[in-house]
Amino acid sequence: MSGNLLRRVRVAEVERVANRIKRFRLVDADNAPLSEFSGGSHISVVMHAGDRLLRNPYSLMGAPSDTSSYQISVLNVEDSRGGSKFMHENVSVGTELEIGQPLNLFPPAKLAKKHVLVAGGIGITPFMSMMNELDGLHSDFELHYGVRSLEDGAYCKYLQSRYGSRVNIYRQDQGQLIPLERILGDQRLGTHMYVCGPKPMIDWSLQTAKLLGWPDENVHSEQFSAPPPGKQFLVKLARSGREVIVRGHQSILEALEENGVDAPFLCRGGACGQCETQVVACDGFIEHNDHFLTEPERVSGKKIMICMSRIQTGSITLDL
């Protein structure tokens, strides 16, 4: 049961919404209704970029109840593995793409009394649908959104006009920083915090919450990171006896797919656990880049999440 049910979609609209950020509106290729989704969900978009097969996760931004189209925002990352560059340069109105079904690894906590959303840059995207959902449920929430400048921050005007004083925008170009200590220091019992943005911002937010005595159970984060690059290495498949080379800018999963090997996966961000694979042997050092395995599991060296993790050099034998 590997992978995700794929659906063919057509790009119905492309809009530049900020510096290096484009919004894409996707409709079913046969104009069938799409499935509804829950706030915080993402989809994976399959891209055939030259000879490379890429599947990047993007948060769904529209109204969860809108079954006519899905909307995603893509930041053109300078150090791109090719996915966001492909979306920016090769995808236009009318282009057909394949997407997976919505998957939610960043849902609002349903038992929370209040939700504090903290976004940095493109990290605003999962909160778009989350706020839509919370607003519909008349749930108490506030957004704190850090941008480099108004030209770099997507949807600033839209958010302020739709949600009014619940939206707070902080402009780095004017020296404004999210006053997180003050924000978290004055919240009612039962509040949950959610943070999405660059890794240093996530780490800072989680640490700030901890130092203010927030229980771990009340803080949530999501980070879409591409599989970190490294050196080329060899994967041996114990069951089929095949050998596959993983190039420096590829994940194990991508290399397997390129060679027609069917391996399990779902989120491709090291979070969902679906691609957990048994390690039969390994003569290199495993770099675990996932958020799923426990520390004892990492130390044991018996498991690897092939969507994100790799070895520094040498070869690894997997139970595939």
Binding site: L5, S35, Q101, G273
Partner: peptide
Amino acid sequence: LKFLLNLQIGK
């Protein structure tokens, strides 16, 4: 549980 947490819409 691990299987069900990843249960997909429509599957």
